[in-house]
């Protein structure tokens, strides 16, 4: 009797999770299916789900509609450089907050946390003018510089650096290590797992970034892939076929999924679990 009840719970559990997975994956699978249909094949209703003549020609069409190579380069450049700089400066600030005692430390740290409640977007108009004065409109740096050090990143990495034993830091200081040396040679190697999981999250967020590139970049060949894809519906003289639009979305979604799965394989253990410590 008891056994029956337990398998009942486990049945509900698995059914629920399978439903969740279907909901999670279906839109993406639907996209992939349509993206390999020939233009002219029906895309409405259930007819969308059968592929009669799979083709990659939609992807070819994409290359004619948008400057994919420069867009891809722009996306990669901002994603990679944005992630690396953020990682470095957040870890550095997190290190200072975690391992140094200095006047105003707690107040400043609470201030950092409090800024999470303000959205930079609210100042978008003057920010646009500031960027113009700095000659950063249409420059990829406009996407990287403002977010070199973020509050969330500092908060998250500080939590990890707190766990680095003080003795190790003291020992290397006695050995004559400089402050930066301690950070670079002692702290960074220890918090590598945290850096890796934070890096994968940041990279995904940067890759998916839409508002700031939309605001700061104004030229087709300066766009990131995301902005170009968002404009696909009107790119082909207002009449881009659905299959071509979805080929475009596939081009932005699949790489980030592969990247994420790769990171999952890479970090065998819990990965993001423990991202925020209670």
């Amino acid at each position: 009797m008891k056994r029956m009840k337990f398998s009942g719970v486990s049945f509900i559990l698995h059914t629920f999770m399978i439903l969740v997975i279907i909901v999670c994956l279906f839109p993406v699978l639907w996209m992939c299916v349509i993206s390999i249909k020939t233009v002219g094949e029906r895309v409405s209703g259930f007819a969308a789900l059968t592929v009669l003549h799979p083709t990659l020609s939609n992807f070819g069409r994409l290359f004619e509609l948008i400057p994919i190579w420069s867009n891809l380069y722009n996306s990669l450049f901002t994603t990679i450089l944005g992630t690396l700089t953020t990682l470095f400066f957040c870890a550095l600030a997190g290190f200072a907050f975690a391992k140094y005692r200095f006047p105003g430390r707690n107040a400043l740290f609470y201030f950092v946390i409090a800024t999470m409640m303000i959205s930079a977007e609210a100042g978008a108009i003057p920010l646009f003018i500031i960027m113009r004065r700095l000659h950063l409109i249409n420059s990829l740096w406009s996407l990287i510089i403002p977010r070199i050090a973020t509050a969330v990143g500092i908060f998250y990495l500080r939590q990890y650096i707190l766990d680095v034993p003080d003795e190790m830091i003291e020992a290397s200081r006695i050995d004559g290590c400089s402050d930066f040396g301690i950070f670079w040679r002692i702290v960074v190697p220890i918090i590598k797992p945290a850096l890796a999981s934070w890096a994968s999250i940041t990279a995904i967020v940067r890759w998916n970034d839409f508002f700031w590139p939309l605001l700061f970049l104004n030229k087709n060949d300066k766009y990131t892939l995301m902005v170009s894809v968002s404009m696909l519906p009107v790119s082909d003289g207002l009449a881009t076929p659905w299959s071509v639009i979805l080929a475009g979305t596939t081009m932005v979604i699949i790489p980030s999924i592969l990247f994420y799965l790769g990171m999952q394989l890479f970090q065998r253990s819990g990965s993001l679990a423990g991202a925020v410590k209670g």
Partner: peptide
């Protein structure tokens, strides 16, 4: 040639350039 979705969109985009002082683009 670059496509603008509508003439109104092109007009807005050009105003954006003027706003950002970006005459080169």
């Amino acid at each position: 040639s670059e496509t603008i979705s509508t003439m109104a969109a092109g007009q807005q985009k050009l105003s954006m350039y003027a706003l950002s002082g970006d005459y080169d683009s």
